[in-house]
């Protein structure tokens, strides 16, 4: 861990001022990911701006009948909030499927959106290649141990290309938010802006070191959920190597709005398969107006995985994702609650 300074900000403006003044400063929320990465010598901010005392810890009525979740609402509080459990069980399930109780008690909503990949080649500085950690150094994963890596939307130009990256986004919460089509509210030196969560995380493209479209001098203030449509018919399915405290091999966030057995609208995203929560507009659209049957779901699964490419250790994810999609949509359609 490198030496760094610490300061506490009491207003968003003060926090923004502090990070604008020092380009290698970082906001400190729950610290559940950043502090680990500092200890691993992956992140080395020269200053930490503690934002835990900003007034961003409330869940309030949002625009158009939705809810607005303050950026500092802890994952545990969010998962167990009465209105979230009632209106957005998908989000509650996703949060409770993530990390451990202790981590959820600390982790914040904004911090969860910004957590970084758990790719081994990123988190261990002894590995000589990682375009995310050391831009231009290549990708150690693509010919390494890549069981937990991406099958969709990755950049694959060979191990030594400065663009190659097959890392996955580790968040469960973000997958549910993508299915729910949430909006991230941010504040910067020039004012506020709204970013659809589906556009918030990015694919590696040619710059895998950049995880999101958030600018370094911007602060997440809230996440807005649209009005609840999937309270009755939704499901978060997480497939993992053990029953708790493991990142998803594949996860599916599925929400359906049904009219009888016909799907009126749908929200649908995948985790553990890409550099961002994977939202396929095509697959989601293919649900609309269709009967909620295994046939429909199988077609949607094929569409969602179209173009998927596996590697030596993660080829299985393609078929596993398809089976998981069918299962998650089936359970969602049945209206069974977790």
């Amino acid at each position: 861990m490198n030496p760094f300074s610490y300061q506490r900000a009491d207003t968003p403006e003060a926090a923004l001022h502090a990070v604008t003044a020092d380009r290698s400063a970082k906001f400190l929320g729950g610290g559940t990911n950043l502090v680990d990465l500092m200890k691993y010598n992956v992140e080395h901010p020269t200053a930490l701006v503690d934002i835990n005392h900003l007034s961003l810890s409330e869940i309030t009525p949002g625009p158009n009948g939705g809810l607005s979740i303050g950026a500092l609402v802890r994952n545990s509080d969010l998962a167990n909030h009465r209105e979230i459990v009632a209106g957005y069980p998908l989000l509650s399930q996703a949060l409770l499927a993530g990390a451990s109780a202790q981590l959820r008690n600390m982790a914040t909503t904004g911090g969860n959106l910004l957590q970084r990949t758990r790719c081994y080649y990123f988190t261990d500085t002894a590995f000589p290649q990682c375009n995310k950690r050391m831009p231009g150094s290549g990708c150690g994963a693509i010919q390494g141990f890549n069981r937990i890596h991406a099958i969709l939307g990755q950049t694959d130009k060979g191990a030594n290309s400065p663009e190659t990256c097959i890392a996955t986004n580790p968040s469960d919460m973000s997958v549910a938010m993508s299915a729910l089509n949430a909006t991230v509210q941010v504040q910067g030196p020039k004012g506020k802006r709204s970013i659809p969560v589906r556009d918030f995380h990015r694919l590696p493209g040619a710059t895998p070191q950049v995880d999101t479209v958030l600018r370094p001098d911007e602060l997440i203030t809230a996440v807005d959920l649209p009005s609840a449509r999937f309270a009755k018919n939704s499901w978060y399915l997480k497939v993992r190597d053990r029953q708790s405290y493991a990142f998803a091999l594949v996860s599916v966030a599925a929400g359906l709005e049904l009219d009888g057995n016909t799907i009126k609208s749908a929200g649908f995203a995948l985790g553990g398969v890409a550099h961002k929560p994977w939202h396929s507009p095509e697959a989601e659209h293919a649900l609309i107006g269709q009967p909620a049957t295994p046939d429909t779901f199988r077609k949607v699964a094929d569409l969602a995985l179209r173009g998927a490419k596996g590697y030596e250790h993660n080829e299985f994810k393609i078929e596993l994702a398809k089976q998981s999609i069918v299962r998650a949509l089936t359970v969602a359609a049945q209206g069974v609650q977790a």
Binding site: R118, Y120, Y121, G144, F145, D241, R242, S244, Y245
Partner: peptide, 25 residues
């Protein structure tokens, strides 16, 4: 322990990634 094939380094050298059972298992 997953050994990286080219560097011989253990890739998953943490208790988050080196999986042992949790209570739920």
């Amino acid at each position: 322990s997953h050994i990286d094939p080219s560097t011989g380094r253990t890739a998953n050298e943490s208790l988050a990634e080196y999986h042992v059972p949790v209570n739920a298992d």
